[in-house]
Computed example of a mutant assay.
Amino acid sequence: MTPVVAFGEALVDMLSSRLGAARGPETFTPYAGGAPANVAVACARLGVPSRFLGMVGNDRFGAFLIDEMRAHGVDTSGVVTTDEARTALAFVSRDSSGERTFDFYRPPAADLLYRLEHLPAGVFAKPAIVHLCSNSLTEEAIADTTLALAELANRSGSLVSVDANLRHNLWPNGQVDIGRATALLDCAQLVKLSREEVEALRGDHPVDAWLSQRLAAGVRLIVITDGPGPVQVHRLGQRLEIVPPPVKAVDTTAGGDAFIGGLLAILAEAGVDAAGFAGWCEDSERIENAVSVACRCGAHAVTRPGAYAALPSREDLDTLRASVRD
């Protein structure tokens, strides 16, 4: 089995008690979150060895995140604490369909201070599946660290996975650095995007041309989600489409992270690393089966509030599959 290593931000989602335009007192409940941390937890809950690399503040929220990750089986020996900045917070509001808006208390934040010298010794001694996202590109120093880490992972024979996970209000003036985000995508063999992220990143390029550029750069598989709509899977010369199971969304906070976590868990169980990924991608049926599992992971997650707390176990996936069949 190939271990999963996720790098980036761990933060606390302060989830509003309100749905949509509901009135009355509003309270916020803390849930452990952060996109790459969610993916590490998603893999661990599915029985895959996973590790999280990142930095949190030496404060109550940082301790809360570490405890939560450990409770779900994630190796946190690569998590660094600092007194130089606080743990990031995200205040999360939801509309009546569970879709979210975020108000981030970042920067400053501890996760932005992680540097290559904080990497544990031997972390890339053996090939792994290394997962990254664009939230660790929003400042120059952390972007340099992230891109250098991706290069180290590639040199080690690891399979690099990137989820764009764009949060425009984390970037200076709300403007994503498209060049920087695209550079990270092109470091990966597996890329996950939402339909909206494709539109944000492609600029003036037609969608098919932009996707072809990513595949020409070395990306083997591009997976595009669209909320409850069909998932598109692109590889050189072929496109597949998989329909996720219908569910009623309560909180979409970790839906995409559950999806990519489920897909990475399938790859990890198959022992796939960079050397084996091209061969794995040649089998359309295998891809469809793996993406179907990922869809069930995402569908389960959006039916529950919070991030870690909503991520499915194997038993949860079996229950969802049985209910959809009925």
Rank of each mutant, 00 (worst) to 15 (best):
P246A: 12
V123A: 03
T182V: 13
V80T: 14
E196D: 15
L311N: 04
A150Q: 09
Q189A: 13
E241S: 15
P246Q: 08
A294R: 10
V324I: 15
G57I: 11
L170T: 12
V92A: 09
R296K: 02
L119S: 11
V293M: 13
W280T: 05
Y105S: 12
L201I: 06
A141S: 14
F259W: 12
M14A: 05
T182M: 01
R239C: 09
L267G: 03
R23Q: 11
T2L: 09
R220T: 15
P244A: 09
V160E: 10
D186H: 12
A109V: 02
R202Y: 02
D59E: 07
S284G: 11
L190G: 01
M14W: 11
V130F: 13
Q213I: 02
E9L: 11
A268I: 06
D111Y: 07
A63W: 01
I242L: 13
A125P: 01
H118T: 02
R23A: 14
L159G: 01
G203F: 07
L166G: 10
E241C: 10
L116Y: 06
N38K: 11
A181F: 00
V41I: 10
G276T: 13
L46M: 04
E196A: 15
D208M: 05
G33Y: 08
D59Y: 13
R23H: 07
R304D: 08
F7C: 08
T146D: 13
R100T: 13
P245W: 05
A153P: 06
L149H: 11
L53M: 08
V243L: 11
A71T: 06
M1Y: 12
V48G: 02
R51H: 14
D111P: 01
A258K: 08
D326M: 08
R70W: 01
G33K: 04
N289V: 13
C133A: 10
E315L: 05
A121F: 03
R314Y: 00
V80E: 10
A148G: 11
G47V: 10
R220H: 11
H168E: 15
S156W: 06
V92S: 10
V39D: 05
G229T: 00
R60N: 08
A322D: 07
A181Q: 03
R18S: 02
A143L: 05
E117R: 15
A301W: 10
P246W: 04
T76G: 05
A35E: 10
A265K: 04
F52I: 02
N169G: 02
A188D: 06
G98Y: 07
